[in-house]
């Protein structure tokens, strides 16, 4: 078991093909994946991530509301003392926004050009990092 990931789709759009595919690929790569579905509010995402004690939150955003959503998620994570959970995002996100989001603490943004392999490598790194910090693995 490489780690535990929460995959969610915030925002109102309902296209979850990519999110579901990533969830299955993470499963195939040895992760335990909590899939929470479409139209999730930041509140629901953070609350679920805390109860599930996940290592990484992966958000798929296609609706264009990414700046508002990530900001709210970071605010809630910090407020509840869960700032150690790594957050990554995927979707059609313009370059200047990627810079803004990275500066705000998003660990990685995957765009339509990202390869599956680079995504998996990053999830492994981030999950390992979080789990080591939490003392859940010693190596």
């Amino acid at each position: 078991m490489r780690g535990k990931i929460l995959i969610a789709k915030p925002g109102l759009d309902g296209h979850d093909r990519g999110a579901k595919y990533i969830a299955r690929c993470l499963r195939d790569d040895g992760f335990e994946v909590v899939y929470t579905g479409i139209r999730r509010t930041p509140e629901e995402i953070v609350s679920s991530a805390i109860q599930e004690d996940v290592d990484v939150i992966g958000l798929s955003i296609l609706s264009g509301a990414h700046l508002e959503i990530f900001a709210e998620i970071f605010r809630l994570l910090k407020e509840r003392g869960a700032g150690d959970i790594a957050v990554v995002g995927g979707g059609i996100i313009p370059e200047p926004d990627i810079i803004t989001l990275r500066a705000a603490g998003v660990r990685a943004i995957f765009t339509p050009g990202s390869s599956l392999e680079e995504m998996l490598v990053l999830f492994r790194e981030l999950a390992g990092e979080t789990r080591r910090q939490r003392g859940l693995i010693t190596s």
Binding site: L26, E32, V33, R40, T41, E44, S47, Q51, E52
Partner: peptide
């Protein structure tokens, strides 16, 4: 693969923010 999809919670998302409900997959 040693991994798992924990997909039950999706059915219970209306309780996700309820202070009276604790869910663990």
């Amino acid at each position: 693969h040693d991994g798992a999809i924990l997909g039950d919670r999706i059915r219970w998302m209306r309780h996700a923010c309820s202070p009276n409900v604790v869910i663990r997959s």
